[in-house]
Amino acid sequence: MIVDTSTLSCPLPIMDHDTVQLAHGSGGSLSASLIEKLFLPRFDNAMLNQLEDQAVMELPACRLAFSTDSFVVDPIFFPGGDIGDLAINGTANDVCMSGAVPLYVSAAFIIEEGFAMESLHRILLSMEQAGKQAGVTVVTGDTKVVNKGSCDKIFITTTGLGSVPDGVMISAGGIQPGDKIILSGTIADHGMAVMTSRENLSFQTRIQSDTAALNGLVEKMIKTTTEIHAMRDPTRGGLATTLNEFASTSNVGIKLIEGNIPISPDVKGACEILGIDPLNVANEGKLVAAVPPDKVDAVLDAMRKHPLGRQAAIIGEAVTDHKGMVAGETLLGVSRIVDMPVGEQLPRIC
């Protein structure tokens, strides 16, 4: 979901400083003022507002899903999102890939001294917006300010807690031969949005990060059937990495139909120029699921009715051959290995 936070009618509150100072993280009065003026209005809720050292909550009797993730994206503002909504969506997604409904989030900020107050405000606004969309509440948090050069602008760590509905058992190890592999939409949008917005590449693109919370989509899928054998969001390392994890954890082979994988022409063009395989590029609002063949139509149907699953497609199948490996079919009809990338994706000339 794309939210242009710059148009939201919420101006930066009047602060004593234009930039974040070491004292803003030292626990004294400046810390208190920062929390009160900038953070609390954004995450406004009863548990947080008490400003205790912890959030105390009643939980329904259920299994819990619990996940944590750190966000260090560079640049912190990129087309389609920023480090703030990424931090909320990323953790909501990690929680809901178990089928859970994400409920509560903690957020810890490490800020480099000198960071613009206005940028921090913008990030918090987009976290607020993302939280509302995902239906999660930020109930506890922490802010530290470090010396210039000790971190790069701002790092955010979020931890999420969610409740897993009865009868739902989803893990990367549950895939059976014959299961169909479903992808919820186009690949490589986030990674290419970030890469093409790095200053030294001077690209002009319409590519937007796909950052979005997937729990609404997951809910629709689970309503259709609880028989989803595996589900994961293909973030770093891209679709190729997630499929390889599926194959090795479930000890099945995965036959990939590359032609069925949705990709936007802009993203494809950018990948071609930089010599990057879109299968290896990060997504932040997509999921891959393994579903038994008799349920696949219903699940696909439900997904396509949701805004985040409109382009959902069957991109492969679990097989008993080549266990632990992912194989694609080349245009000449022979199979090839689809491997995990070794390291970071780098633009190349050859």
């Binding site: 080349t330 000449l332 009809g333 022979v334 199979s335 090839r336 050859c350």
Partner: peptide, 23 residues
């Protein structure tokens, strides 16, 4: 190699790979 051209031509053409990689 990505498209399996060497595999489909096995027995017909042997493709040997040259030194054209600056890296």
């Amino acid at each position: 190699v990505r498209n399996g051209i060497d595999q489909v031509l096995q027995g017909k053409i042997e493709l040997v790979h040259g030194p054209g990689c600056p890296v």
